[in-house]
């Protein structure tokens, strides 16, 4: 299974987002590098708005992710509730 990943800047805005990603993706591995957090997962990673909102304590627009996004790998499917990264095989 190929690895998908997403990398976010290390800052106060992304801390709850990263926590939400960890909650929704038990198989994800979080690598904390200087100024950057890179989250790897086998084949599929899903980022859910609801979980982020619970962590943040406010409403969240999935497109806000754009501000702190560094890079990603995988086919992207996004709607207002989630962003999913997948590799087919």
């Amino acid at each position: 299974m190929s690895t998908v990943f997403i990398a976010l800047q290390t800052n106060e805005e992304t801390r709850p987002i990263i926590e939400a990603i960890e909650m929704d993706n038990p198989e994800a591995v979080v690598n904390r590098e200087p100024a950057m957090v890179k989250i790897n997962a086998p084949g599929r990673l899903v980022i859910r708005r609801e979980t982020i909102e619970e962590q943040l304590g406010r409403s969240f627009d999935m497109q806000e992710l754009n501000i702190n996004l560094i890079t990603l790998s995988g086919n992207v499917v996004e709607d207002e509730d989630s962003l999913t990264l997948t590799w087919g095989n």
Binding site: Q9, A35, N66, I67, N68, L69, I70, T71, L72, N75, V76
Partner: peptide, 20 residues
């Protein structure tokens, strides 16, 4: 440089996705 790099890179995910 960290800052301009990140500021640019935050667009790259969109560019990469456009390319794919």
């Amino acid at each position: 440089t960290v800052t301009f790099g990140f500021s640019a890179q935050s667009d790259e995910a969109r560019h990469m996705t456009l390319g794919l």
